[in-house]
Design a protein around this nucleic acid. Structure first.
Lengths: 339, 339
DNA sequence: AATGCTGTTTAAACCGGTTTAAAGGAGCGC
DNA sequence: GCGCTCCTTTAAACCGGTTTAAACAGCATT
């Protein structure tokens, strides 16, 4: 483990100055081709890789992007989403020599997470996930001068580009699927109303029902957790005229709801149809398989990282990116309503 | 957004040299107390925070720790583990101004992940999770000169301290619980034999049965995924004399197995008892609730971060840490065998 | 008054890159 | 032979800290 070579070593070996090595490395014009070749050869022989730390200091960049997530289980384990999303992000970063810095903060302390990343200048930009209505983080990031990309579109004006994966077509498809099966008593277990994506799903559901001249028998608000799904389901099943189908805002609540329905003695889908959202891994394998809506979080990560990097690289007017919308996956948990 | 103050600004304001400011900040002896106070006051007034980048360059530290995980679903979503583990790690890092750098690599390319972290000098140390037998990463890290801490103990000699959370007592408890209920035909769905923790669970199970004069009716190897759980379960149920209880190496496989059993027309636990491992969120809420084994991944993260930091700080002979062992959680998915 | 000692403080080098301004050299026209 | 470009290369400053060696001030000795 001898010390790694520095730019000075390369310069000495190639018989040029440090500056020339830097120019050659960065493909700056103004160097004779022969010199460039000589320098690159020397660098290669020594196995030289420029020091990130030194580069960071002199060009004032971190060569890293940041993701802040709360410890709040409602967010953290939007289970299937983050692991795959992060994998997508990494697939982009690794080709550019960038790193992903993760901040997991206590519930409600997200602002601190971004502050820390900004103050420590750990990252060049951040991903803004799980948008809230009138999300205060947008102003915060502007104040901190931290570039960002939002996952889906905020409801107000935003100085940041958005990468959007429209949840609504999937939700519409779920409702139409249920209507097509003959359901008229459809209930909804929504996510917390503060989340943009939660209300997007809810309003799409209500609108689709309205187009058919119906309205939901009830809309319960869950918190995206399994426990919340159970609670909401129990309340729905206790209604004087319970629904024949329940659409959940995510799979976790749906799977828990499935358990609750079965525990209450109901058979799914004969007595009750159930649909989720996310197409998490387990959705396919619970019994009965869960009808749900599938998105592509990996691709989401790829697109988000790409867009954020354009911002970080100083491009202006980086366009929003629209991903293929979420789509319906029909499994066994939905069927015609009981007669 | 005026430029942030540098050490020179503080020095000027306090009427001292840069060096003195550095000394004061780092609590180095040799400065008059009055001077220290004056400097700290000036720093405070300017809101100065030393630049991580500059510090990084001059002291050759990254002030960050790294975690490499593969995109392999068998590892990545050891679901409940990583999110909570990471949260625990962060709870330590945030108090020390450190960051967590995540590397998600393609299946089988873990070595590249560590190489990248080392070459880019992104981190001062790494967590080694999901240990394999004769894990090649240990030698790799030694070669790279990257400090590490292993999560659980490798089977060979290791230069790194280990933070261990013994899986075996939980597994033993599961088996004894089943034996106590009267089961004699117990099967096991193990994780891939290459993982240390997978075989630890398996051997504990076999040993406990042996102590009761029994042996497993079959041991299937799953891959920790839901799909693998389904496969293994089908094979077990297709045996001429199928088991009356199945112990899975993780909850994901167990929940999938539960679905498979129900899909096959069995009632759990009346016809078949099922037990998992992890106590993932859904375990409590599927129907019937899953008997499983609970560990404390958050605490695991706290301990691992603490230990790794001791190594990084140059302490020698950092002791291993033993966490409270995993414990049995009995729910409805286990009961006496059918008569 | 010169010397020595202790306790403080500082100037300057250093970490390893990037970048700017200026120097050096070749080729050309006059 | 001289002056002028144009092309290539370099020295040196810079990023913002840490660290070392030396300077300095104050005071007690002799």
């Amino acid at each position: 483990m001898t010390k790694r070579p520095t730019i000075a070593d390369v310069a000495r070996r190639a018989g040029v100055s440090k500056g020339s090595v830097s120019f050659a490395l960065n493909g700056r014009p103004g160097l004779a081709q022969a010199t460039v070749d000589k320098i690159l050869a020397a660098a290669d022989e020594l196995g030289w890789r420029p020091s990130n730390r030194a580069r960071s200091l002199s060009v004032s960049k971190a060569f890293a992007l940041g993701l802040v997530i709360t410890r709040d289980p409602a967010v953290l384990s939007s289970d299937p989403f983050f692991p795959a999303f992060i994998a997508g992000v990494e697939s982009v970063l690794s080709t550019r020599g960038q790193a992903l810095v993760l901040q997991v903060v206590a519930d409600g302390a997200e602002a601190d997470g971004y502050r820390r990343l900004a103050q420590d200048a750990r990252v060049d930009g951040v991903f803004l996930s799980d948008l809230r209505h009138d999300d205060p983080r947008i102003d915060l990031l502007v104040e901190l001068g931290l570039p960002a990309v939002t996952l889906n579109s905020p409801d107000g004006e935003s100085p940041f580009p958005a990468v959007v994966l429209d949840d609504r077509p999937g939700t519409v498809a779920v409702v139409e699927h249920l209507l097509g099966l003959g359901h008229t008593r459809i209930a909804h277990v929504a996510g917390p109303a503060s989340f943009v994506h939660a209300t997007a799903r809810s309003t799409a559901l209500v609108a689709t029902l309205a187009a058919a001249g119906l309205s939901p028998v009830a809309v319960e608000t869950g918190d995206f957790t399994a426990a919340g799904g159970i609670e909401a389901t129990r309340r729905l099943l206790a209604l004087p005229e319970p629904p024949t189908a329940i659409v959940y805002a995510n799979d976790r609540m749906a799977i828990a709801g499935l358990g609750a329905a079965q525990a209450a003695g109901l058979t799914v889908p004969d007595d009750l149809s159930i649909a989720g959202f996310d197409d998490s891994e387990l959705a396919e394998y619970v019994h009965p398989g869960l009808t749900t809506v599938r998105a592509d979080p990996f691709r989401f990560g790829v697109a988000a990282a790409g867009t954020l990097n354009r911002v970080v690289d100083g491009e202006t007017d980086v366009p929003d990116i629209e991903l293929p919308p979420a789509e319906l996956v029909v499994r066994r948990s939905t069927s015609a309503p009981p007669v």
